[in-house]
Amino acid sequence: MTAPALRRSATHPFWQAVGILVIAYIVVVWVVPLLPGSAIVPKSVVLQYMVTVLVGVLIYVSDNEERWARFKEPIEAVLAEPRLRVVRAVLLVVVTALVGLVAYGQVATTVAAPPNLRSIHPAPPAEITFRGRSITLTGLENPLRAHPESLALYLAEGKGVYYRNCLPCHGDHLDGQGHFASGFNPLPANFQDNGTIAQLTESFVFWRVAKGGPGLPREGTPWNSAMPKWEDFLTEREIWSVILFLYDQTGWTPRTWEKTGTGDGGRGTGHD
């Protein structure tokens, strides 16, 4: 295309509209996922965005009588001009084939895995039984933190517990990508992520470690979780020490119980 022809197209409302739609598509499909914290935009959302953009474009081109007439020119030309017979035929065939393809995609069913909906942080019980002893979780803090002079010792102990037990799944970097992680679904928890231990009280973590997958309520899909019931392997102190290690190694601070006196005031903060 020559430069003057290009300039003419750039100022033509029809080609402007096409350009805006193409740019919008590129932005939604390729640029948005690159933004930090974004993900790939689902197809249905892309369709919504594109319809919105299309409506905006139509409002703009139809706002002014002359612009509307110029906008329609190329469309009418393709539909009516005898010299554009080939373009017209190709367009008809392509549109028809596309409609057929989309319709087939809608009706041809294939079996997919059922949705795996689960509550990531289900509500914890107020109380658990640990090796026959009852422990009240509500308001419970990590008892090892009451001995700051021995913290280094507890941390070393927790590190040993982690590397002997947790490493194959939760990984060297505590990001849930250990060498066995790929074999499980759901994937092991990523402690580096701001959505796991960073959001939880240590008592919640204690419950999850002690009772594991089998101790999850139904909404936590206990049948899928490969998290062992660690009370079968570890003592209470070992669990508290490995929890210290998780927070120390990742740099997160545990969520604390709000001081709201007695009752259920501070229970379950953010555990949903």
């Binding site: 009516a80 008809l92 549109v95 028809t96 057929g100 809608q106």
Partner: peptide, 26 residues
């Protein structure tokens, strides 16, 4: 295959109608 074929026929038919009307108007 029934509904995709139907959808294609309807599209093609509508397309031809639109073209014919545009040409008549032209």
């Amino acid at each position: 295959f029934i509904s995709p074929v139907l959808a294609m026929l309807v599209t093609l038919g509508l397309g031809l109608v639109v073209v014919r009307r545009a040409r008549r108007r032209g």
